[in-house]
Nucleic acid binder design. Structure first.
Length: 361
DNA sequence: AAGGCGGGGAA
DNA sequence: TTCCCAGCCTT
């Protein structure tokens, strides 16, 4: 057992030195830059993160620069990346770090005290930045570990997570936690894939219980997925005399917290939506004659949504929100609303088909 | 322990 | 279409 353990680790590290991914945040030892990367990488694949990471570090090269920036500027650079509480927590944490003289945490326990840093990120940063022996148990390590150790329980359950972490901890080469964790991540991302794992290319093949028993497609075992509900939303496209559209800022919590959207509510008809939209914008409004609504659907993790944008005109002074040019709002706008703005700026949804006016859009 | 929270890429 | 990703926070 002792022999296979050390040889497993050696094979893994050797494979990593030849086949590891070249990622921008692996070229630096700056705790600030690595911290930014880890937050962006939460629930987000590395390829998606790369351009965001580059732009973000260019805009905010230091933790001081980030701490001094307005939240709206930070959210602008996060636009499209999702899970926007990450950006709000990042901004809060930057202020905390600067208040502590700009010194970064020295171990996992200190990292975890910052907002937006949970068990995984604390372990990853402790290992990569501080060289501390820790297991950064992300989805990759969970999947690799479940297959490698032949774990038959539901992988997301606390018991199974603990079991896999303990097994990896036994294999961890002291002082090399950063490399060890990232080697396992890369193995999960490029070889030990969720579907159709490339076992023929796996350096750990001869150590893998799932491979030996032919169960690599059945492991990891996941909890049953719930059905995804469908929700309908109505958005008002209020236009001023200069052709600008009204956006409102979402509160700093909940979906799209801190971002700017068309005024919208969950509703199935204009009749139902209008009073609520009037409350949000602080104005009375009526539908624009001759303009048709425009709908898009968007799938979230927990529900599917249809957003119907309805052109309308304010009939009293508008008290809330900000007028923006739809082709360049210069504010952080979530993807579905950005699509609505783009569709409108490319022709304003067109005219209502004269044969049949949708009464219940 | 469970649910809310984005968006995109791959099969 | 469905799955799932370098998870965290609140309840």
């Amino acid at each position: 057992m002792a022999r296979s353990k050390s040889s497993l680790t050696q094979v893994l590290l050797s494979w990593y030195s030849q086949n590891g991914r070249q990622l921008p945040w692996r070229k630096t030892k700056d705790p600030y830059a690595i911290w930014i990367s880890e937050i962006m990488l939460q629930q987000t694949r590395a390829e998606v993160v790369i351009p965001y990471y580059e732009r973000f570090l260019q805009a905010f090269p230091t933790v001081q620069a980030l701490a001094q920036a307005p939240l709206d500027t930070v959210l602008r650079l996060w636009e499209g990346l999702g899970y926007y509480s990450r950006a709000r927590n990042l901004h809060r944490a930057a202020k905390q770090i600067v208040r502590h003289g700009g010194t970064f945490p020295r171990d996992a326990k200190e990292w975890k005290e910052l907002p937006g840093i949970g068990p995984y990120t604390a372990a990853a940063l402790a290992a990569i930045v501080n060289g501390q022996d820790a297991i950064a148990l992300d989805a990759n390590l969970l999947r690799v570990g479940a297959r490698l150790f032949g774990e038959r329980g539901i992988v997301t359950s606390p018991v199974v997570r603990k079991r896999i972490e303990r097994r990896f901890l036994e294999l961890l080469p002291p002082g090399k936690a950063g490399t060890f964790n990232q080697a396992l991540m890369d193995l999960g991302a490029t070889v030990c894939l969720p579907r159709n794992p490339r076992c023929e290319a796996c350096p750990l093949r001869r150590f893998c219980v799932a491979q030996a028993t032919g169960q690599q497609e059945k492991i990891p075992v996941r909890a049953r997925r719930r059905v995804r509900p469908h929700k309908q939303f109505i958005a008002a496209v209020l236009q001023d005399e200069r052709g600008r559209l009204l956006l409102v800022r979402q509160a700093d919590r909940g979906i799209w917290g801190g971002l700017w959207t068309l005024p919208y509510v969950e509703a199935r008809s204009w009749r139902e939506a209008r009073p609520k939209l009037e409350a949000i914008t602080g104005t009375r409004m009526k539908r624009t004659a001759g303009r048709s609504p425009y709908s898009i659907t968007h799938t979230f993790t927990h529900f599917t949504a249809t957003y119907t944008a309805i052109p309308a005109i304010p009939t009293t002074r508008v008290r809330h929100g900000r007028w923006v040019r739809p082709e360049q709002p210069n504010l952080a706008v979530p993807v579905p609303h950005r699509k609505l703005l783009q569709a409108f700026s490319r022709g304003g949804f067109g005219a209502i088909p004269h044969a049949r006016t949708p009464s219940n859009p």
